[in-house]
Design a protein around this nucleic acid. Structure first.
Lengths: 181, 181
DNA sequence: TGTACATCAGTGAACGCGCGTTCACTGATGTAC
DNA sequence: TGTACATCAGTGAACGCGCGTTCACTGATGTAC
């Protein structure tokens, strides 16, 4: 029984979850799966996370933070507020999702898995709030509502690309067109 | 032990599912819950459905058929192909969802519940195919892709109305605006 | 009309399984003297 | 430098629980003669 490095073990558990979520459903992801893939004992899992739910939240937050960093950069270098900038941010989001993450699981199943519902709802709301500013700047009448729907649109686009495993120019063009761009 | 009417018992089971799905998550809906709410023994459930999955598919198909009847009517009385007609059909869909159905469960969770994933995917594809015709008639370049995103948009709108429990005019206006109508 | 039997919807206790969680234990590493 | 002890990450067998599913049974209803 080697002493081990706690931070590293924790990272192994998270990496294992990400790896597994690439392949299968988040909902069906069990603690046994995770510890099996991470190569640690079951008890170790509970040394690092209070329970399964906390682990899922960690997984999702990790994903979200990574992607949002990209979005932030895109927005900053995209000029003034409006649908152009919104589109730039949204395309950056698609790119971030494509890069190396278990998108399908985290986008769709996240909404169902009770463990992370609250977390996802909060982050979606933040995204929508941000988008609403851009819609308002572009002069859309129902900016808040448009923003909420836009979140659904972008999620659907990310899902489409995740399923095909490639960038889908047609999808991205359609996104732009919905924005009247 | 009364002899009972099979068709009626089956209907009781389905009604119970619909009733329960109004309140809680589909994913967490157990056979015990269903038979409890229906007031029949557990064994009776398996007299009417091969397994839990078949029951879910039945539930979803029922919901889908009901709503699509409304959509069909709206489309027929909406004139020529194009985004106007698409909007009419989509608003009819929202109305159908609102009427008396466990929308949230069936729209979102349906995509995760393995039992009905295939069924939902098939019906979404049909909806999208239909929508693609309208987009094409309206002269949109990437009609197929726009249609796929549109399905996501309408689902998000239905979800928003389901959560608030009311018709949301702002949401519906935004829908129209995304269509350049 | 009465009797014996077949049919059939429904019953509910029991089973098996897999999951999340716990806990008594191991053994390597650090610390005190 | 050596010895005794505390700490601490990690282990994995065991537990409890709830679920989907089964099956031997019940009893009312239909049918044959």
């Amino acid at each position: 029984v080697p002493r081990g490095n706690p931070a590293q073990t924790r990272q192994q558990l998270i990496d294992a979850g990400v790896r597994l979520a690439h392949r299968r459903a988040l909902t069906g992801l069990t603690v046994d799966d995770v510890v099996g893939a991470a190569g640690v004992a079951k008890g170790t899992f509970y040394l690092h996370f209070r329970d399964r739910a906390e682990y899922f939240v960690t997984l999702h937050r990790r994903f979200h933070d990574d992607v949002m960093k990209l979005v932030q950069e895109a927005i900053l270098s995209a000029g003034s507020a409006g649908t152009q900038r919104l589109l730039a941010g949204s395309l950056a989001y698609l790119d971030g999702c494509r890069r190396d993450h278990p998108v399908k699981a985290l986008l769709i199943e996240a909404r169902v898995e009770p463990a992370i519902q609250a977390e996802v709802a909060r982050q979606n709301a933040r995204f929508a709030k941000r988008a609403a500013l851009e819609f308002a700047a572009a002069g859309w009448p129902a900016a808040e509502e448009a923003a909420r729907l836009w979140v659904g649109l972008v999620a659907e686009a990310a899902l489409a690309e995740a399923e095909s495993g490639a960038v889908l120019p047609g999808i991205r063009d359609a996104l732009a067109r919905f924005l009247h761009t």
